[in-house]
Amino acid sequence: MRRIEALRILAGKLADELVVTSLAGVAREWAWIADRPRNFYLRHSMGLASSVGLGLALARPGERVIVLDGDGSVLMNLGSLCTIANCAPPNLALIIFDNQAYASTGLQPSATAGRADLAAICRGAGIGEVAAVGDPARFQAAVEAALACRGTAAVIARVAAEPVQGPKITISTWENKHRFLRAIGVDTGGD
């Protein structure tokens, strides 16, 4: 399965969910096919997408938060999976695209190309609903289940390692933040 293909399936399933993306490929491809005010693209802080997603999920209990992450990013912040499992927000879904590589820097292998198993790690962290899928039909079913889930869900989607699709993100970080805050009606108190 190609990641862009999976993202198109996901885009067809979303309504007003809040989406936090990791950096690099997943952010660019999601911005390319599904740019929307309720997207927040992390641009540099690798590994923190799931943490930001947890904070959002705790702050917005009436809305569903989806984190689009990658294997390299998740491997940088494995403790976050444990924190998320213990907080257990019922409105948080982690979708982790595992291409077993650091694709944006030239496809160096990540630990999941070796012995690491992100689904087992998620289960071990205590996340209750974990699915590992590798084809579009199963991905679609797993996403539907995650979106309907009343607990924290994780979908590990095995995807091909390939160069990033789509153009660079052009929205500035400042504009991205304010567009996001306006979309959900938040005033952080700043100027």
């Binding site: 999920a57 705790l58 403790g79």
Partner: peptide
Amino acid sequence: LVRAAREDEAVGIAAGAVLGGR
């Protein structure tokens, strides 16, 4: 009160909460 495993993670969680209006 949220108990994180590492401090940069704590910054990420808090930042996300602020973006959500907390």
